[in-house]
Nucleic acid binder design. Structure first.
Lengths: 214, 214
DNA sequence: TATTAATAAGAACGTTCGTTAAAATACAAG
DNA sequence: CTTGTATTTTAACGAACGTTCTTATTAATA
């Protein structure tokens, strides 16, 4: 019976994502989304309730189409180390190749002071926790396969990998230098690699301060 | 001849910092700052020109009183490794002990989509570059003192340390778990410590398929 | 064809935004 | 006391904000 929608929700949300992502919650108005999507402001309210609802829906869709899809894709790899490496490298490539320097919508939202939206911060936190779980699962898989030292701490390793991802997404907004991001990934991956595969890093025998090594 | 100021600029800026830090640029109005500081909105305009000017001044003051002071303080230490360690641990403690979970005003601003303010993003970037230089300087000092492997890359190490700081400031807003932050610092510090001081991490002899990532 | 119900559009609401002009204030110098 | 000057306040501007009301449109059903 109802009239056909001129745009489906996902298309509207994609426009909302594009705006909220770049300009933040308080920096984006309902009218901005209205003009970008071509849907009247009143229609937006009819569909999403209010600005908060629209924002949360946009964030949720972003998280599912972005990070969640990526995690699922790399989790399916047989090699857990390749999953971690592939995930981080894809994140680096994404950060490097974005001329708009948008970084990550989730991270941006987590740091967005204007995100008083109930649920927004929680959603961001939950999704980033899932990312830590993704890393932890891969580390545990690698450990079970005997690819890691048995006394390696999966939680500590997972947290370091998540930290690398977070730092990259911050740098993606500030200064996405390709070399820097790739070095960051390599450094985060180093503790997962067998020792002979890493660049040598032998500390000198003397430990006294001040005296340079001969 | 002039009438005495009811408040000095720094006090006004401290109120502005408190608000911009928590709620972001677009989420804070001139009237908010006016009410918090007790100074009329028009007086704020008389002093700082416009909202952008007030924001940039607040950010500048924050960067000088916070990160810049901290870098100077730890740079003065004789032991460069203690400087790095102390810096990161202080950052962790700061993140942990803030009940408001404000994170870092500079990082928040860098990710704040509403920061169209000319100079704000650049200021954030410049200050974070200084932080990388701080880490690099300590690494070089340690290397010159023979405390590090001679083939260690100071840039890569400095970038990893900066990444740790950035990740901590993100987590400070999302979920400042003390254990997690301290583990992060320890992991970032590990490449700087002599091998025997680190937790052992011997990979098993059998190696499955080769390590990913170039 | 008439009915029905979700959808969209237009217009307007009260509020808050950044900003400014003008007037009032307070202190030092003459 | 008068003058001068930097500061502050009062009041207001137009624009944009989130939101809602009302009205018009559209397609499937009866």
């Amino acid at each position: 019976m109802p009239r056909t929608r001129i745009l489906d929700d996902d298309t509207v949300l994609d426009h909302a994502i594009a705006l909220f992502w770049r300009r933040g919650y308080a920096g984006t108005s309902i009218r901005d989304v209205s003009e970008a999507s071509g849907l009247g402001a009143a229609a937006l309210y009819h569909r999403f309730g209010d600005k908060d609802g629209l924002f949360v829906e946009a964030l949720r869709r972003y998280a599912e189409e972005g990070p969640a899809e990526r995690m699922a894709r790399f989790s399916a790899l047989a090699d857990p180390l390749a999953a971690v490496s592939g995930f981080l490298h894809e994140l680096a490539d994404l950060s490097i190749s974005d001329p708009e320097r948008r970084g990550c919508f989730l991270v941006n939202t987590a740091l967005d002071g204007a995100a008083t939206v109930p649920g927004a911060r929680g959603l961001a936190r939950a999704r980033l926790d899932e990312m830590k779980d993704f890393f932890r699962a891969q580390v545990c898989r690698a450990e079970a396969a005997g690819r890691l030292s048995p006394d390696a701490d999966p939680d500590a390793l997972a947290e370091s990998l998540l930290a690398c991802a977070l730092a990259m997404r911050v740098l993606a907004r500030i200064d996405p230098d390709p070399g820097r991001l790739r070095r960051l990934v390599d450094a985060a991956l180093a503790p997962l690699l067998p020792r002979e595969a890493r660049p040598p890093h032998r500390p000198p025998s003397l430990s006294g301060k001040g005296a340079p090594a001969p």
